[in-house]
């Protein structure tokens, strides 16, 4: 009797791991009954599962170290900083309102209060890098996206593990990247392009960030918007000549990717 669907190695694993549908399971069980070698293999894989649980399950009932159960203190510092910042904004807003009493508060003035730290050089670096390489057609990137060495090479030169986020959900495909100067050490730039030929660049820097934690900030000048955030010693900035909403969506995707 021959079977039209031969049992594969993957089937055996899926069978052992219970990740198989009932129909296929029945088929495999029929096979095992007549194939002692295959049955041996399955038995040994099962035995491995049991042995692993015997060796490590006791850890599940070990008491948890206190440091793990407690929410880390720095989060509260973060929260406190955020509350303080919000209070300052409210006070400033109030003061502004008092000083400007009788006049309507201009949107630009409000925006100035809510803007990122004045003169933060970080987004400027990203913007300049974006503007410099944007017009290049054939030499927009130094190393193309299909070159497997792209990310490892940039990570090595920048000095921290980095990855190029997948922005396909926003329609942007990674074209490649290049090494560019940061303030005191190399930084990386990834270039993305959509079907309409629109480009965004992601600037990644390690060190030179003032070791701080920022939220998600927006900086706009010369028609190039930059969303950026700094997470300890790493800074990320997404620059593009898109409308602010679209750019924010793309940047959020990069942000979420970097959360891992």
């Amino acid at each position: 009797m021959t079977n039209l669907t031969p049992i594969t190695d993957n089937d055996l694993h899926a069978y052992v791991d219970g990740q198989i549908d009932a129909e296929r399971r029945a088929l495999i069980e029929a096979h095992l009954a007549t194939n002692p070698e295959m049955a041996d293999t399955v038995a040994s894989y099962r035995a491995q599962r049991v042995a692993l649980h015997e060796a490590f399950d006791s850890i599940l009932s070990e008491p948890l170290p206190a440091s793990m159960v407690r929410r880390p203190a720095f989060r509260w510092v973060d929260t406190a900083t955020r509350i303080a910042a919000a209070l300052i904004l409210i006070v400033l807003g109030g003061a502004g309102g008092w000083l400007l009493r009788g006049e309507a508060v201009q949107p630009a003035q409000v925006a100035a209060i809510a803007a990122p730290p004045a003169g933060d050089p970080f987004p400027t670096w990203a913007r300049v890098a974006h503007v410099v390489y944007l017009p290049e057609v054939r030499r927009a990137v130094e190393v193309k996206a299909d070159d497997a060495t792209l990310v490892p090479w940039l990570a090595k030169r920048v000095g921290t593990p980095i990855s190029a986020p997948d922005l396909k959900a926003s329609g942007f495909q990674l074209q490649g990247g290049r090494l560019i100067p940061g303030e005191s050490k190399p930084a990386a730039q990834f270039l993305y392009q959509d079907d309409a030929g629109r480009r965004v660049t992601l600037y990644v820097r390690h060190g030179d960030t003032g070791d701080r934690k920022t939220g998600f900030l927006f900086d706009d000048a010369d028609g190039v918007g930059v969303y950026y955030w700094i997470d300890g010693d790493r800074g990320y900035a997404l620059a593009g000549d898109l409308d602010r909403d679209t750019l924010r969506k793309v940047a959020m995707q990069a942000y979420e990717h970097m959360a891992y």
Binding site: I59, L64, P65, S67
Partner: peptide, 24 residues
Amino acid sequence: QIPRLRRYARALTGDADRADDLVQ
């Protein structure tokens, strides 16, 4: 989730201290 993270980390690294550092 912590107990399972610890179990996996211990099995992966083979070293209780390193495993707990990783979980932390």
